[in-house]
Structures are given as structure tokens and as C-alpha cells.
Design a protein around this nucleic acid. Structure first.
Length: 190
DNA sequence: CTATCGTCTCCCCTTACGTCA
DNA sequence: AATGACGTAAGGGGAGACGAT
């Protein structure tokens, strides 16, 4: 243990203790053993009772104030590291949510596009159902072509999006889109 | 009862030094 | 050897708790 002078608790001898008289450099670092003991106690209690602080200071050959300061600085360092950890956890969570949002956003865009296409198809079908017999043959051909194209495009889109919504399955189960009646279209859609 | 004062402890920010690349 | 970045012991100030008067 270091010689702390005749009155180790006076301000003067305290300063003398920390000033090396030979080279005027201040002794700052604690020894490995001191730090090891402090760390061990900090793991079980981050705040010291006054009595325990005095005892620890005595055991380690330090001033009680030094022990108190060490615990204060240690708590600050611990909070800082904890903050860093919390930040990383939050950032990972945000990144995950952000990518999921992007995915859903693209999916939404694709589905909106498909809905618009299907609406157009429904409108065409509705028109063809309400028109007279005279123009039926030519309209049937047009709608039939449109239906085939829509069906193909829709399935391609779904393949690209890897979407498993039930609507796709329904579409695939329709054996002949050309034979769909107006109400069947609506059933399929709804 | 309450207002005031002194003391202690905490937190936060900053400073000064030690260490290392 | 010089230097800049980083870690750490300690200083200082403000705030809150608590006991004594």
C-alpha cells in the first residue's frame, strides 16, 4: 500500500499522495487488482452504501471519494453502453419494419394495378351482356381476347409477386374464362 | 407545522492526463 | 519523436433527499 502521509484525509496530503514528487506527474490509473475488485462489486450493486464504500476504500487503499467517483464514472459508462445496445436493437427493428413496409407497398401497388385491370374487364363484360344479339359475335371475340390476356397477365404478376391469395387459386381453377357469365365474374371477384 | 440551512449523493458535462496505434 | 483518438480519474455545478435547528 502506498504511503499516504501522516494525515491521509487532509486535502494537502491527498494532493501530495497523487503528485509524484520526482517528476510532478499525477498518478491516475488504478491498479489492475483495484479495478478488478471494483468491477466485481459493481456487478452485484451499482450503488454503494456509505459504510460499504468506506470499507472498500480501506481494503483497496483508496480514498472513499475515489471509490465514489469510480462508481459514478462506471455507472455513466454502463449507461452509455446500454444506450448503444438499445440503439442497435431499435435500429434493427426499424430496418426490418422499413423493408417490410417497402415490400407491402410494392405489393399494394401491384394489386391496385390488377384491380384496375379487372374492373375494366368487368365493365366490358357488363356492356357485352347488355348489348343486343346483332353485335354479340364481334364483342364476344374482343372480350374473349381481353379475358385471355388479363388472365395471363394476372397469373404472371402473381408469379412475380409470389402472392398466394385465394383469388389466384380461384382464377387458376376457372377452366374456361370465355364461358363465364356476368354473375360468375362477380362471384370470382368477390 | 414549516421554513431554512448544511450535508450528502447523484447526474451531467468538462478537463487533464495516460495509453496506444 | 510527434500526434491524434480514445479511455478514464477527477473537478465543478445543479438538483433532490434528509436531518437538525
Amino acid at each position: 500500500m502506498l504511503d499516504m502521509g501522516s494525515d491521509p484525509y487532509s486535502e494537502c496530503s491527498f494532493t501530495a499522495f497523487f503528485n509524484n514528487k520526482n517528476n510532478n506527474k499525477i498518478q491516475r490509473r488504478f491498479t489492475n487488482q483495484q479495478i478488478e475488485s471494483l468491477e466485481t462489486i459493481f456487478q452485484t450493486e451499482s450503488k454503494l452504501e456509505p459504510r460499504k464504500k468506506l470499507q472498500l476504500a480501506k481494503d483497496l487503499g483508496l480514498q472513499p471519494r475515489q471509490v465514489a467517483i469510480w462508481f459514478q464514472n462506471k455507472r455513466a459508462r454502463w449507461r452509455s453502453k446500454q444506450l448503444e445496445k438499445d440503439y442497435n436493437i431499435l435500429k434493427a427493428s426499424y430496418d426490418s419494419l422499413s423493408s417490410r413496409y417497402d415490400l407491402l407497398s410494392r405489393e399494394h401497388q401491384s394489386l391496385t394495378h390488377q384491380v384496375n385491370k379487372l374492373r375494366e374487364g368487368i365493365e366490358k363484360k357488363a356492356k357485352s351482356c347488355s348489348t343486343g344479339e346483332t353485335s354479340y359475335n364481334s364483342m364476344e371475340e374482343k372480350v374473349s381476347d381481353a379475358d385471355s390476356n388479363m388472365k395471363q397477365e394476372y397469373i404472371e404478376d402473381e408469379k412475380m409477386n409470389n402472392n398466394n391469395m385465394g383469388f389466384v387459386e380461384n382464377c387458376k381453377n376457372v377452366e374456361c374464362w370465355d364461358d363465364l357469365e356476368c354473375d360468375q365474374w362477380w362471384d370470382l371477384w368477390s
